[in-house]
Computed example of a mutant assay.
Amino acid sequence: MEQLIIATKNKGKVEDFRNLFLKYNITIKSLLDFDESIPDIEETGETFEENAALKAETIAERFSLPVLADDSGLEVDALDGRPGIYSARYAGLEKSDQANIDKLLEELKTIPEEERTARFVCVLAVARPGKPTLFKRGTCEGRVADQPTGENGFGYDPVFYPKGSTKTMAEMTPEEKNQISHRKNAMKQLEEWLQKL
């Protein structure tokens, strides 16, 4: 594998993956590198795996190149795993981190602290022409806070305490967060696979 497309327009995410693949001499491109506009792929799957595969396989077919896509979100045990695959649009189609957090905290307001266990999930899908799609799943266990704190990060970071931490993800530096994040854990598994290639 000499070239890989990362199915995202998020520069931060691209940089993370570029750093990972650098030592394997794999050239990384993202959707930002293509002149033609690639329409957003509708996430119609019922699992993180299905949504990641939809994105990776659609773009791999279009360019006949290997493609990596991810899907991630927050699963809360007391809410039967919600918001899950709907994490980014939990409060409605108009994506708003604050509205999503408000809805989550409202739904958990009667749930005691010890029952607010949750995890961030990240699933990476690598689609390669003519080969089965590869999946790697990473998680970060923790619990949901009763109010947001911290200015860093995005999404549900201000209300998520990783297990064993007294800081929310939004109170951590990017370096601290990257040591324990669900994406980092999925990338570790991907790296093990790359080493065997």
Results as ranks from 00 to 15, higher is better:
residue 146 D to Q: 13
residue 38 I to W: 12
residue 101 I to L: 15
residue 18 R to A: 14
residue 34 F to W: 00
residue 48 F to M: 06
residue 138 G to S: 12
residue 160 F to G: 02
residue 169 M to T: 03
residue 168 T to I: 01
residue 55 K to S: 03
residue 185 N to A: 04
residue 128 R to V: 14
residue 180 I to V: 13
residue 55 K to H: 06
residue 105 L to D: 07
residue 110 T to Y: 07
residue 35 D to C: 07
residue 111 I to V: 15
residue 76 V to T: 06
residue 186 A to F: 03
residue 128 R to E: 15
residue 18 R to W: 01
residue 197 L to Y: 11
residue 141 E to G: 00
residue 93 L to Y: 14
residue 45 G to C: 08
residue 14 V to G: 08
residue 178 N to H: 05
residue 139 T to E: 09
residue 119 R to D: 01
residue 24 Y to T: 11
residue 37 S to W: 00
residue 68 L to F: 03
residue 112 P to M: 08
residue 82 R to L: 15
residue 103 K to E: 08
residue 124 L to D: 04
residue 178 N to T: 00
residue 60 A to W: 04
residue 13 K to V: 15
residue 3 Q to G: 11
residue 87 S to F: 10
residue 25 N to E: 12
residue 182 H to I: 00
residue 28 I to Q: 13
residue 195 Q to Y: 00
residue 193 W to I: 12
residue 16 D to Q: 15
residue 155 G to M: 03
residue 55 K to L: 04
residue 104 L to G: 04
residue 185 N to K: 13
residue 148 P to G: 06
residue 190 L to C: 05
residue 163 K to W: 00
residue 128 R to S: 15
residue 188 K to R: 14
residue 91 A to K: 07
residue 187 M to V: 09
residue 191 E to A: 04
residue 133 T to C: 12
residue 183 R to E: 05
residue 86 Y to T: 13
residue 23 K to L: 11
residue 163 K to E: 12
residue 133 T to Q: 07
residue 100 N to I: 13
residue 121 V to P: 06
residue 187 M to W: 06
